[in-house]
Design a protein around this nucleic acid. Structure first.
Lengths: 243, 243
DNA sequence: CGTACCGTTGAGGTGAGTCAAAGTAAGTGG
DNA sequence: CCACTTACTTTGACTCACCTCAACGGTACG
């Protein structure tokens, strides 16, 4: 096993609480301590599986480093990705609260580190903290779930637009501002992953990318993307030009 | 206003609690009494609106009679229906817990009766009943939300299959067994509603219906549908024949 | 009896899928 | 470190399911 991850393993959950956006921020110090002592940290290599569709949930997973892709195979055999989760975000909570098997598979897009908060701990925390419960109610209600989470799989929206929407969504996490209004991306996504996210085939993604390159809107070099003018992305998504 | 509905208006929530499947079944008698005294019952004519997309939630709505369609207009202007709700089922809870405006519009498919449980009541009930909270956590986690709730909008699934899936889903509510393995439906849905539910255009629905009729799988007379052999529906959905 | 909506039918276009094959990158073992 | 396997990516030719636009027949309702 690669030790590079475990060496910079975080010792306290506090260090993970990047901000108020994570659910645990509702907890008191003593409760964070419980979280801290009962959680189980695991490292995953790129491509590894955190949990599998149809597995029985063992608790809630908290990503502390790296990125994770949530995808599922639907009743008709199509692979669909519906979520990309990064540091200080939770996964697997939906199945936990649904009291049902995992509806999705979580795959490590990069080497990553994930903590499992066991069901037993979750129960104690939820019983003791109405604030945490309220927070999870809100999270669940806002989470679009294993469906078209990214609004990327709406019908009658051309792949071109969906692809550009995806870029805009990923900008916060993987985009770096360049000179003027240019942006550079380093995506942890293979073409197939992109395809699964926008609800298309890999071949179509390739072709659409080429189209965007021809129009000078986004230049792809493998997983590196150059967007010379961010405005152009918004234009495409906004007005949905008639070709 | 038509009085036929108000005349058979239910006086107690108890009479509405058709079974354990409704959230209120978690409540104690005294709590049901609170529900009973603070709820506001409203009657709606067919076509009426219970709440509108982007409205501020005022509580949770409980359908006591009739059927309601949940639909929304997405960012790209497409109308999509994602839920059909009937007696003893709740609507609007997602927005309530999300602490956000309604993500959908609720339209009465039939004349119907809906009770509003005001936010104030909800707060009191939730504060007093951990069981109710747990139940709502489960409901939210299981509810696919304003997305492809019926698995009917999956990509690469032909409209024909989606339409048949819809029939199978609606069988419990609107299907009546006939002789042998035949089923009759009386749907409260216009062609456009069906189209919005399966993610297609009304014209395409018409054409697909005609196809099903030619194959003797389902005969449509307006909103009345005859299905001579239920098995055939399962066959279509199951094996997704290669034409 | 007209207005308005719903439903059907037709002609025509096309975006994206499918299949197949070649090219490229990435990881494995000797 | 190179040869080999395996998986990912690109390209091309072809097909078709569904959309669009437009017109017309039905049906409900004031």
């Amino acid at each position: 096993m690669d030790e590079s991850l475990t060496s910079r393993q975080l010792t306290k959950c506090d260090e993970c609480r990047f901000g108020a956006h994570i659910e645990w921020s509702e907890l008191e110090t003593s409760e964070v301590e419980l979280l801290n002592t009962t959680r189980r940290t695991r490292s995953h290599r790129r491509g590894g599986t955190i949990f599998n569709q149809d597995d029985e949930p063992q608790g809630i997973y908290c990503v502390s480093g790296g990125y994770v892709l949530l995808w599922r195979i639907d009743a008709f055999g199509n692979e669909t990705a519906f979520g990309l989760v990064g540091p200080a975000e939770l996964i697997g909570y939906r199945s936990y609260f649904a009291e049902d098997r995992h509806a999705a598979t979580a795959r490590a897009l990069t080497d990553c580190q994930v903590c499992l908060v066991p069901s037993r701990t979750m129960r104690r925390l939820l019983d003791g903290s109405p604030a945490l419960v309220r927070r999870f109610l809100r999270t669940l209600a806002r989470d679009p779930g294993p469906s078209d989470g990214l609004l990327l799989r709406a019908h009658q929206v051309p792949i071109r637009v969906r692809l550009v929407s995806l870029l805009l969504i990923l900008r916060d996490r993987f985009g770096v501002r360049g000179p003027d209004d240019s942006v550079e991306f380093n995506l942890p996504l293979a073409r197939q992953d992109i395809a699964a996210l926008v609800g298309a085939r890999a071949e179509t993604v390739t072709r659409t990318i080429k189209e965007l390159e021809d129009d000078g809107i986004a230049i792809f070099h493998g997983r590196h993307v150059d967007v010379p003018h961010l405005d152009q992305l918004y234009e495409i998504v906004g007005i949905d030009e008639p070709v």
